[in-house]
Design a protein around this nucleic acid. Structure first.
Lengths: 339, 339
DNA sequence: AGACTCAATGAAAGCGCTTTCATGAAATGG
DNA sequence: CCATTTCATGAAAGCGCTTTCATTGAGTCT
């Protein structure tokens, strides 16, 4: 005794309303083409039956799916949370559904997810950052699927992106660090391989240090995946160096918070004994003691704009327009002035 | 000059391999039914053309979509991040794709998302907590879509759920609080309306206090949406009471961290002047100073088990089996002992 | 009043796949 | 050596929708 009451179809609605399936379809998709009276009858039939259009069928005959896909490196830490939340809210208000998947920072998986989203008919796709294998971009172009990059912006790159200049932002932060008298800098960077955001942030620091005439060979740089505990461990290694840095610049807030935690455990005072900086400006940075000096990125604004732009690309067929958003250096108590 | 190279279809593959479409379909879905030699030819045709099955078409003719949907209240704060990440990783390794949407704690939106997931052919759906309008459950049952609840467990509820007992966990935490000599308790609860997790946590506290013979009318309780700043504001209001509580128990870590932040801003020492507790055991709780006393929930384990169970339900057609996971009271420096 | 436009609707052809059902060939058995 | 299974494959019927094309009955114009 299976209680499968069959799922109502468009034909059922047509019968119930006494019209043709074509009319029901039109009532749902282009109500303007249908007379007021039929419209009314169709609507009530829909309600009575609890009809929901079958997405697969719709996808097959129509071109659009009103679906946008996004692939983010991770959901686990909060880096992308605010931005994606805003992205999805804006999409929702534009009538689109967001499909999210995460790649665990693995290019293989990301490529696979792109295919999955394509086969699911995503009208457009949001990706994080520039770097990925060329074949992924080729696939997207061959399939004619609009895509937009976020969380990064590089003036010299033609790909449509909405974000901030990771290199320049970190360069500026480093500016401030130097202006405050720090010369003995150490870095805890995120994994740079296959991650242009991480490598550009690192580059921002090294470039600025070079300008300052600091020998890069003397700058300790540890690369590690974004994770609190990794940040903590890297920090500890740096503190065990014979020549202790006066400041540890971290690739993001997660690493920085890890560093702060370990500092506390080791009895090292921030910023008296050592200064620490982060990047991203997520909540984590605000709640630690002392508050973290970081680069604040307009996550929500970026999410909203990305939604607007991607939808515009999808609906107009236009090529994407890049936008650079400002980032802001937030100086808090985690950094000491040596001058 | 549109460069729409048509997307290759199964028929194209069939032609290229010199077999019938049926054989291609079988090669892809039940390779066992196809001879080694044809299988080889089909595979190479697939690779040559870069063929990806059309999800909509597949969905229309087959019953399964290998898709699981999840609706979480929010992506913005980290409460669900770890669990969902684990959920998705496990699903991925089981060959399923996860579609996530968030409801902003709005039952209307959640109901809408359930329909959206259903029309997209989700084979199963994960929902957070028990409470939602009956019609949502009816819809799911009518459509015969397996669903599983997470982040909650109540022995007296027949709905399949994998999670922890919010009431009992908070009851235990309250036990500890009382054992440490606190009698003047205040509460900052999450919004309880339409949220059984929040209301059960609150209930855990009030029940325990009642057992202790404490007059509930004298216990200040502030309800507010989960948000750091809300926690901070609520804390400030509590601190302005003529009869200051010795401890503020918060509905989750986010509220608690907000409280700690405001305490610091107000120059109130935690735990010397006032104790604070949270719930969830997310990263946030570990990085604040002092560390937060909280209830640690096995988020990742819950995510993995939910994935396993939901897939089991989908594949076997069985009814879901509930599982209660243990939670753990983590006592840290944010609480002072008065005895 | 006849020719014409327009609005509202229906008939029917797919969209790309899966899955019976049928068929023929090869293997097995007595 | 013929009857019977078994295996590999193909033909064709949908799955539920959208959309062109055709049809009808009004209104509009001269």
């Amino acid at each position: 005794m299976t209680s499968h009451q069959a799922v109502p179809t468009l034909d059922d609605v047509a019968k119930a309303a006494g019209v043709s399936p074509a009319t029901v379809s039109r009532s749902l998709n282009s109500p303007g083409l249908v007379s007021k009276s039929t419209l009314k009858r169709v609507k009530s039939a829909v309600d009575a039956l609890g009809y929901t259009p079958h997405f697969g069928a719709r996808f097959m005959s129509a071109k659009r799916t009103m679906t946008i896909g996004a692939i983010i490196p991770t959901m686990e830490n909060a880096i992308f949370a605010k931005g994606i939340q805003a992205f999805q809210e804006r999409l929702h208000s534009l009538g689109y559904t967001l499909l999210i998947s995460s790649s665990s920072y693995d290019p293989e998986i990301e490529a696979e997810q792109v295919r999955a989203l394509a086969s699911r008919g995503a009208d457009g796709i949001l990706l994080i950052g520039y770097w990925r294998e060329e074949r992924v971009y080729e696939f997207l172009k061959q399939r004619n699927i609009p895509f937009l990059l976020a969380w990064a912006f590089a003036a010299n790159n033609a790909l449509p992106a909405i974000g901030f200049d990771n290199r320049a932002s970190m360069y500026q932060l480093c500016d401030r660090v130097l202006a405050m008298g720090h010369r003995n800098v150490a870095v805890i960077s995120g994994t740079t391989e296959g991650n242009d955001r991480a490598s550009n942030r690192l580059k921002g620091i090294t470039e600025r240090l070079k300008v300052e005439g600091i020998d890069l060979a003397s700058v300790p740089i540890i690369e590690t995946p974004y994770d609190i505990d990794n940040g903590a461990d890297a920090f500890e290694r740096l503190m065990r160096l014979s020549d202790r840095p006066s400041i540890v610049m971290c690739g993001n807030d997660v690493l920085a918070v890890g560093a702060m935690q370990r500092a506390q455990e080791m009895g090292i005072k921030v910023p008296d004994d050592v200064s620490i900086t982060g990047f991203d400006g997520i909540e984590l940075a605000r709640v630690v003691t002392p508050k973290l000096t970081t680069v604040r990125v307009p996550h929500s604004e970026m999410g909203r704009r990305a939604a607007d732009e991607l939808v515009r690309m999808v609906e107009s067929g236009d090529v994407g327009r890049s936008q650079e958003l400002p980032s802001e250096i937030v100086v808090e108590k985690s950094i000491a002035s040596l001058v």
